[in-house]
Amino acid sequence: MGQILVVRHGQASFGADDYDVLSDTGEEQARVVGRSLAHLAPDLVVHGSLVRQRRTAELAADAAGWDAPLREDRRWNELDSLAQFATVSGSPEGLDPDGFQRWYDAAMARWTGGEHDADYTESFVGFTDRANAALAEVAANGTVVAFSSGGPIAAIVAVLLAGGAATYGRLLPGIVNAGITRVISGRRGLTLLSYNEHQHLAPDLVTYR
């Protein structure tokens, strides 16, 4: 039986010129999650191509003392939602936080609804399929730690729970930075063991964006 631990990246630099860089808090979260998993001897450590994913993997692997190789797989990448949504829903630039949230919720509902797939470079179904394909590929590798983002994690868990777009939408907002989702692989296929574990994080390190 194999196990896959899917870890969300540490906190990125929201509001900064370059979002795709870990904040100081994000770097500490990465070290903490690594130390919490030091008892593991993973056969493979995989991460997406985004800086925040790769850096979280590097810091965690160093803190854990793992010898396993680190491999990049772009299928673990987050959806470039703002760029995709802005092309069809207008730019959110200049909106206050409440206005941005209303814009985002409406844009997300349009994307997941499936009626406008041709408007997007990556549909909700396509996004879900590629995240779950990445999971399926590593399932035969023994113990695997995968560093990803909230979107792919929600897409994977929604499928494992036999849910759809509504389940995805409910899961996504609550995924904690450096939280851990565990999946086991056996004769019955893939089974969700736990979702969004974050007891390894002190209260001041629990962040959602």
Rank of each mutant, 00 (worst) to 15 (best):
R55P: 02
A16P: 10
V51G: 12
R209N: 14
A166Q: 11
E28R: 13
A83G: 10
S23N: 06
V145S: 08
A30W: 04
V46I: 15
A133D: 15
R52Q: 05
S81G: 11
V6T: 08
G113P: 05
E72N: 11
P92Y: 05
E28P: 09
Y168K: 07
V125T: 14
R71N: 00
S185M: 10
L172C: 02
P97L: 01
Q11L: 13
D24S: 12
D204E: 15
P203Q: 01
Y195C: 01
L44K: 07
D73G: 12
G10E: 10
A131H: 08
V159A: 14
L171N: 03
G15D: 10
G15K: 01
N132M: 11
A202M: 04
Y208C: 01
I175V: 10
R55M: 05
S81Q: 13
A12L: 00
G10F: 09
G150Y: 06
A136G: 09
D17A: 15
V144R: 01
V88P: 05
A202H: 09
A166S: 13
I153H: 01
T25I: 15
V144K: 07
Y104K: 12
V157E: 09
R35G: 01
T143R: 13
P92H: 02
R130Q: 09
R130P: 08
D105L: 11
W66P: 06
R187A: 14
L161A: 10
Q3I: 12
V157M: 08
R52C: 06
F147G: 03
G114I: 02
A162S: 14
Q199G: 15
S23Y: 06
